[in-house]
């Protein structure tokens, strides 16, 4: 019996979620006394994973799996899970992981719990807490199946170091015939994505127009943050859809979320309220967002934000 995690990579390196999943998997494997296994695709340097408690890493390298393809990855994961009698498979909540998990669940006849927060309350049967109603609530789910899959919410489990002797095993990819082909992947280079960001800086209609977005971008680059926006801002074409956060956009679960000129409508809050610390800058002291914030500044964004950027630069310089 074993526990299996799917580690994701970006530009040939492990993503932070790989270390989160390893830390999480280790915490489950230890009391059960079972092996923690990981699968990775097309990565050269596997050593960073050694620090997080993985016992065995299955490394698949194949140029035709260069681009993530959910069904091919799922087929490889399924085979490994079966060969190694994995009772629990753990994935992140990235776009790719959420794409892959339901396919893997069907091929393993496994139960799948997405949006899991925190460690399971029990393993047999599996009892987990999951967010639902777009983070407005949680539920306690019970999964009583031979194999179960956990989709761990982003940024919901802290990374903890736990160096282990990690066995690395090469495995040949299984490739199935398919008409499905990834033609092109376009990524904004050098930008942090909302899903992976520790800090997100978000702008609303209060910024008046796209020409003022340099304020958001400057603040974000000072903090190494991703940029986001409210729904009307993307609907009006001020910013791309990919930045729309909230109930009908992307969820945000960052450590720090800074909202500037965003009123804090219920649909906006629903998507961002699993962020740990929320800062609100708004010129209306009655803006509903202040009720959901940890820190608030009542003021004009066009004065407060440049000041904040200036002070942050000085702070970083002195660090």
């Amino acid at each position: 019996m074993s526990i299996l995690i799917f580690t994701e990579t970006e530009n040939g390196k492990f993503k932070k979620s790989a270390f989160e999943l390893a830390s999480y998997g280790r915490a489950i494997a230890d009391p059960l006394g079972v092996e923690l296994m990981a699968v990775c695709f097309n990565i050269q340097d596997t050593s960073p994973l050694e620090s997080y408690g993985v016992d065995r890493l299955i490394q698949i390298s194949d140029p035709s799996l260069e681009n993530f393809t959910a069904h091919q990855y799922a087929a490889n994961m399924a085979e490994i899970a079966q060969t190694h009698d994995a009772k629990l498979v753990i994935l992140s909540s990235s776009a790719n992981a959420k794409y892959l998990a339901p396919l893997l669940a069907v091929s393993l006849s496994a139960g799948y719990a997405s949006n899991v927060v925190g460690l399971p309350e029990s393993i047999e049967p599996l009892r987990v807490k999951r967010s639902c109603f777009t983070n407005k609530a949680f539920n306690l789910s019970t999964l009583d199946n031979k194999v179960n899959i956990i989709g761990l919410s982003n940024n919901s489990y802290p990374v903890s170091e736990n160096p282990k002797e990690m066995v690395v095993e090469q495995k040949k990819a299984i490739l199935s015939e398919t008409s499905f082909k990834v033609e092109k992947v376009e990524k904004a280079s050098g930008q942090v994505s909302i899903a992976d960001a520790d800090i997100v800086v978000s702008g609303g209609r209060g910024l008046k127009g796209p020409e003022n977005w340099h304020l958001i971008e400057d603040l974000a680059s000072t903090l190494g943050a991703a940029t986001a926006c409210s729904k009307p801002v993307s609907d009006m074409g001020w910013r791309p859809h990919s930045e729309h956060v909230g109930q009908t956009g992307k969820p945000v679960a960052s450590n720090l979320y800074i909202a500037i000129g965003v009123s804090g409508a219920i649909q906006h809050l629903a998507g961002i309220n699993s962020s740990k610390v929320k800062v609100v800058i708004n010129n209306d002291p009655e803006a509903p967002f202040f009720k959901a914030a940890d820190y608030g500044v009542v003021g004009d964004a066009f004065e407060v934000v440049p000041e904040l950027i200036k002070k942050l630069k000085a702070f970083k310089y002195n660090e």
Partner: peptide
């Protein structure tokens, strides 16, 4: 079919039948 998918930080174009 020609389609595209939003990925974390970008867009991916795919084709299939």
């Amino acid at each position: 079919v020609k389609a595209s998918r939003e990925i974390d930080g970008g867009i991916e174009s795919v084709s299939c039948d």
